[in-house]
């Protein structure tokens, strides 16, 4: 259940941004999560909903985008999408590959209102 810990970190980031941008309420938070992060969407949503109460993002909607795992073959240089955690090059069959995408755990946008007074 590392989703809960990651959501805690997420709210730390939201808080910092809200202060910096002088937001008074947040309606939407968008995140981008790579396939290497083993995030279960339902658990992440559950953790988000549990954590948002009594915060500036109490009514906020969560938008999740999942990014596939990408690897580069150290043998032939082919770039490929890793399916079902099979880290083997589809072009040359080489098993010496480097993961080059899929570790993302990013906040990509916040939609909210600013106090303009």
């Amino acid at each position: 259940m590392h989703e809960m810990s990651i959501v805690e970190h997420l709210f730390g980031v939201i808080d910092d941004i809200a202060k910096k941008e002088q937001l008074t309420s947040i309606q939407r938070v968008a995140v981008e999560i790579g396939g290497m992060r083993q995030i279960v969407p339902e658990l992440f949503q559950f953790a988000f909903d549990a954590a948002k109460d009594r915060t500036i993002a109490a009514g906020a909607e969560l938008a999740m985008t999942f990014v596939p795992i990408q690897a580069t073959c150290n043998g032939c240089g082919a770039v490929f999408e890793v399916q079902l955690h099979e880290y083997v090059c589809g072009s040359c069959g080489g098993a010496d590959v480097k993961v080059t995408g899929g570790k993302e755990i990013l906040i990509t946008s916040i939609e909210g209102d600013r106090d303009d007074n």
Partner: peptide
């Protein structure tokens, strides 16, 4: 307003 970002959620840990 929409604030576009690309910030690591685990920035504090990193």
């Amino acid at each position: 307003m929409i604030i576009e970002l690309r910030q690591d959620i685990l920035v504090a840990n990193q």
